[in-house]
Computed example of a mutant assay.
Amino acid sequence: MSAQVRIGVIGLGFMGSRWAQALTEHPRVELAVVCDVRESHAKAEAEDLGTTWSADPAEAASDPTLDGVVVCTPEHLHVDAAIAALESGTPVAIEKPLAHELAAAERIRDASVKADVPVLAAHILRFEPRYAAIKSAIDDGTLGAVQAVRSERIGVVADQEVLRGRTSLPLYYGSHEFDLARWYAGDVARVAARRSRGVLQAAGYDVDDLYSVVLEFSGGAHGTCTLGWSLPNASAPFGTSGFTVIGEHGFARVEQGTTGLSVVGERGRKAVDTWYTPNVHGRTRGALANQVDHFVRVVTAEARPLCTAAEGVEAVRLCVAVERAAGSDAFVDVESIAA
């Protein structure tokens, strides 16, 4: 077995805690430190996972004894922790979106290039077997040249109980869909968009409810995307989501809004994750485990990042273009979006 690598996790929210748990289960990883500005939370996580803790993200990220750093802080805090690690020569995985704004995303990309240190933009859907199978079907010619894509990702009002308006709908949900669209069909040349408001405002959150987006790709393909987080909380556990790719020879479709499993008790239906971070016999499996394993291989120079910092930047640029298009009656050229 190859030597273990020492990896730290910065930010212990929903995804950070799951990254930390999955890293402890990896046979080639020593979870060296967990960090969160909430000191009591960091201490509790460290005790549960049998590691050390920190409440100082910059100090933890720049620790020269680390072989890798995973940044799972809120989006607007990604840039400082990521650059601290990169300037110390440490490979970084950064939860999507790469940053909260284009300028910050470009700073991360540029720091990666300057230090010649890899960044994995952690777009987890690239590691989910169904989405990866679509990419394989494109690459091996099964679908033929991609002609169109169609996607939807609409979550529930309860999302805002955690987010509380800290980010936009295109950045939070659109970063998933737009990264996949680019992965499958190439660069997006221009976008048009419309948005609606009302449901979440009535619930006390000053954010948009829904976006409808038209995509035109540089290679000639086209597509649509519907984004939202305004469904009733009684909706299906993961809202309604899916992705369709239509090629010259066929099509592929992922139905993400259903897990294929129903668990119902006295309190109603229970949300059970079977794809992303499922617990199988006490261990984390699914897309996150695949992503963790890939990052370990990036850290050890056995693999290049499946999604680079440069690709993460372009996903953020596309999100910004969609936001701008929603306030316009015209298509917006994606290349025109600058920091």
Rank of each mutant, 00 (worst) to 15 (best):
H26W: 05
L261Q: 04
D206N: 13
V299E: 00
C72F: 01
F14N: 14
A82W: 03
P129Y: 02
F238P: 02
W229A: 14
E177L: 14
A148Y: 06
V37I: 15
V313I: 13
A326M: 10
V29A: 09
E266C: 05
V119G: 05
T284K: 08
R194P: 04
A81L: 08
V199P: 03
R317W: 08
G247R: 00
V92T: 08
T284E: 05
C225E: 09
V149F: 02
P57Q: 11
R28S: 12
R195D: 07
H123R: 12
G11Y: 00
H26P: 11
V149S: 09
A115F: 12
F295L: 15
I83M: 09
A148W: 06
A221D: 07
G250D: 03
L12G: 05
R164C: 06
E95H: 10
V292N: 09
E152P: 02
T308F: 00
A42V: 06
G282S: 08
H100V: 13
A44K: 12
W275S: 08
V299N: 02
I138Q: 04
P278F: 09
G174W: 00
A44E: 11
R267P: 06
D56V: 06
C35D: 08
S40E: 15
W19D: 01
V334W: 05
V334D: 10
L31T: 03
K96V: 06
A85M: 03
V334L: 15
Q256V: 12
T51A: 14
T24Y: 05
A289H: 05
Y184V: 07
Q4K: 14
D80F: 01
P118T: 03
L31G: 05
E248W: 01
R253Y: 15
D159Y: 09
V207S: 09
V214F: 10
A55P: 02
L163M: 09
G247S: 12
V292T: 07
H26Q: 14
S235K: 08
Y276K: 14
S168P: 08
R197F: 01
C72L: 15
R267G: 09
A61P: 07
L215F: 04
S212K: 09
V92I: 06
E45V: 12
V191I: 03
T142H: 15
E47A: 09
R28V: 13
A325W: 00
R304T: 15
A339E: 11
R317M: 11
A287V: 00
L231T: 04
L77P: 02
A58V: 13
G155P: 03
P74S: 03
G312M: 10
G89I: 14
P232D: 15
S17L: 12
Y276N: 07
V34D: 07
F14D: 04
S136A: 13
V263Q: 04
L318E: 13
A3W: 02
V71M: 07
S336L: 11
V322H: 03
V191Y: 00
A330E: 14
L98N: 04
A60V: 11
G16Q: 00
T259G: 13
L169N: 00
H26Y: 07
A84I: 07
T52K: 06
R28F: 04
